[in-house]
């Protein structure tokens, strides 16, 4: 009996199925969705320039949005682009909020990244590369940064990003082209 049951384990539920359960108040489904996508959403927020604590807060806020918005989900198997889109909108609101309330405040420095377990030389080299990349990314305008993060770093398609940001696909490619150009310039300046 058991053997027969173990031969046919249930297939993992799709994101769409989980969201249907969330809509019906199933917290287990929300937890499963969180396990699948929370780190990805948080990484996007961090790469859009949010400090780690803010990225944590907005990740939570994004998944609470899921509870409210599950009923309007369009049914795609993977909810990642949808979640990332909500996170980007949260990040934009956060940026505007910070700008409005504390326009004259300058956020100095970033919280240190977690310690790496590499050899000292490799760790130093990696850290320097990461710092150069971070400075270059930080210098991008928000809209170019969003497109670069979503397409290049997160691997979303141009169409998914266009839907997420509510812009034509051509705009995505144009922003990406200029983002790349600025990043290459910034990185080559950093090496000189």
């Amino acid at each position: 009996m058991m053997a027969a049951q173990r031969m046919n384990p249930p297939a993992p539920a799709t994101d769409a199925a989980l969201l249907a359960r969330v809509r019906d108040g199933d917290l287990g489904a929300l937890g499963e969705l969180y396990d699948r996508h929370a780190e990805s959403v948080r990484r996007v927020l961090a790469r859009l320039g949010l400090r780690p604590g803010d990225a944590d807060d907005l990740t939570q806020a994004t998944f609470l949005d899921v509870v409210r918005a599950a009923a309007s989900y369009d049914g795609r198997d993977s909810a990642r682009p949808w979640l990332v889109g909500m996170a980007v909108m949260r990040a934009r609101r956060h940026r505007r909020s910070i700008t409005r309330w504390a326009a004259h405040l300058v956020s100095v420095g970033r919280e240190p990244s977690p310690p790496a377990a590499a050899t000292p030389e490799a760790a130093l080299d990696r850290q320097q590369q990461a710092q150069r990349a971070q400075r270059a990314l930080d210098a991008l305008a928000p809209k170019k940064r969003e497109v670069f993060v979503l397409v290049v770093l997160e691997g979303l398609s141009g169409e998914e990003v266009a839907t997420t940001l509510g812009v034509p696909v051509a705009t995505v490619w144009t922003r990406l082209h200029y983002a790349r150009r600025e990043l290459r310039d910034a990185l080559s300046r950093g090496e000189r």
């Binding site: 780690p52 590369q129 990461a130 150069r132 270059a136 790349r180």
Partner: peptide
Amino acid sequence: ALDDAMGALPSGER
């Protein structure tokens, strides 16, 4: 080279 350079960004996973 740009993709490589930007790949050095920390993932910052919890």
